[in-house]
Write a protein that binds this DNA or RNA. Structure first.
Lengths: 343, 343
DNA sequence: TTGAAAGCGCTAACAC
DNA sequence: GTGTTAGCGCTTTCAA
């Protein structure tokens, strides 16, 4: 077959153990011997066989990533963050996006119990109890991305949805709007829930009422933004500002507004959440909450490695919130130029 | 450690060979025996150890995917296509995006020669000869996504850039525009080259001159679209239609046009290429070329499996072009409503 | 259809 | 610092 350790050992005139040592970091071997072996290995295109290596060492140099089906906008950014960090630590990344056809739980189980990976980064929108139990018992480290607030038996990295929502809503309140509506996300979605909490908290802080007529449930899609806006604005009692709990719905709102000749922000102010690329193209530019996506991935990996290396306790719960930022556009009523920033 | 084949063999009262057979597809084993073994395995949370398995069988059930750093818009779609198809064939997907800091060649080599994967899907924007040689000698199958037209020693799946460009340019020519400009992509980029070929061919076909003043080099970025448009339109001799060789540049064009009070399509018609999400938000909607992204990934994987299974020759070059589609918006002058389609 | 046994290529004690 | 050797957990002949 291909070159093995034996061949290299023979050519270098050493034992296979020594060849092995040449390829492992912390092993006592004479620098000259190592150099020689590595040279010969190079010449013979020799690479240690990963299967053999991990069979005897129990290490796989691989981490698993389970991603949900939907979050398109995040996907590439998250993976980028993960891959970059994994690469720094010389690890490979095994991905699995959890199709509808696929049983997510099964995939995770497979990942965790088959010994294919040393740890798992898990991102599932609706986290069931089943998972939590599994994770908290797992012998392999698992780090969640975007875990519900109320889950506290796990390690997770999250966007600070509450703070982000609070600050963007506070921003519009400071503009003087008093009838602030909200289009929330799908039921049971933790991001949506937290963003709603931030919204409510801001209203309360500024003594504004939480009007049920101004709360509409969307599902984070463009389409639902479109129709939710129409519903909100066709009531007798109309909001003067709307917080779309994600940018995608804000895009839908813009179209609906255009179609019904409603001016943003003159007739109604709009703010979003996520700072997706497309939202920068809107006229006026959308005021929204910036989310540090790739950081979410890289932080998760960094922590995962700490767990793998035993620097932190595998089962010590740990919730981490990444700070969001406010992106000011013209949609909230701020007097900025309509011209876009060239990015 | 965790459960091994021996334990299961004992509990089932059979030899380890039989347990092994229960887990492999084409092996002669009594259905009852298999059922029993699988049940016991399930009860004991037993999964065959992948390293051990591939050490003795030479199979890894894993394919490698090397992606370039940039193509964000494609990234998630491509991976989705790949993952879905790989999942159907019970394979895992090992990804590596080739950061600038990383030596792509090295990664590919690692993938191909370390025995970690059974085949590789490779997507690199600028393909050097070094690669081609490597691939055509490789013992492991390699499928390229988006390979230059002139490379014919490899297996590749590509967008039919020529046809796509031809048809969208033909479309504007049919509108009666005679002074058609083009903003091309970065030097040496094969997509850009082919799109330019399609453009030229259409002009020639309809006896329109290929005016050097109407050819500007961009680099596929928003920014370059912006500035290239300004350059084109500040000449004395202005084009009456512009083919932006990707949508991202068309987005930049729209902003530049807005800033300089140039009306699309009244003053100048614009068409793009790629059909990215953001382009659907433009007013008027951009006429562009739709690209079957996820199909690119899944077709590549399907073919890779054929190679892995020995159904096709590893080194028989094979170029595949996926058909593009025309997406008609208002930017070319077509009389469609400004209202967007709700998608 | 099943079992026995020889590896797959490497790592990690343990000796020297 | 280096060699010897016993596995790691599985697949796959070969026999029965």
């Amino acid at each position: 077959m291909s070159t093995t350790i034996i061949e290299i050992a023979q050519k270098a005139g050493v034992s296979i153990a020594t060849v092995s040592r040449a390829f492992t970091q912390n092993s006592s071997i004479h620098p000259d011997t190592r150099r020689k072996i590595l040279r010969i290995a190079e010449e013979n295109h020799y690479k240690p066989n990963p299967s053999a290596r991990s069979l005897s060492s129990k290490r796989t140099d691989t981490i698993g990533v389970v991603l949900p089906e939907l979050v398109d906008e995040f996907f590439s950014e998250i993976i980028r963050g993960i891959d970059e960090e994994a690469y720094k630590s010389q690890h490979y990344v095994l991905v699995a996006s959890s199709h509808s056809q696929r049983n997510v739980l099964e995939t995770v189980l497979e990942f965790m119990f088959s010994g294919r990976v040393e740890g798992v980064i898990l991102m599932v929108p609706q986290l069931q109890n089943e998972f939590i139990k599994l994770i908290s018992r797992s012998k392999r480290p698992v780090v969640l991305i975007d875990a519900p607030q109320n889950i506290n038996q796990v390690v997770s990295f999250n966007i600070n949805n509450f703070q982000g929502a609070y600050s963007v809503v506070e921003h519009i309140i400071n503009h003087g709007y008093k009838k602030v509506g909200i289009i929330i996300g799908p039921e049971g979605n933790c991001d949506s829930d937290e963003r709603f909490r931030g919204f409510s908290h801001a209203l309360k802080k500024y003594n504004l009422p939480l009007d049920q007529d101004f709360i509409i449930r969307g599902d984070f899609t463009y389409r639902s933004g479109y129709y939710s806006f129409i519903r909100l604005m066709s009531q007798n009692k109309k909001p003067d500002a709307i917080f779309a709990t994600n940018d995608m719905m804000a895009l839908g709102i813009y179209e609906a507004a255009r179609n019904s000749q409603i001016k943003i922000p003159q007739d109604v102010a709009i703010v979003g959440f996520d700072d997706i690329f497309s939202s920068r193209l809107l006229q006026p530019r959308l005021t929204t909450v910036h989310v540090p996506i790739s950081e979410l991935g890289s932080s998760a990996v960094r922590y995962l490695f700490k767990m793998i290396n035993g620097e932190v306790d595998l089962h010590k719960p740990c919730r981490n919130e990444l700070t969001t930022g406010l992106v000011i556009g013209g949609s909230c009523g701020c007097p900025i130029s309509n011209a876009q920033i060239i990015f």
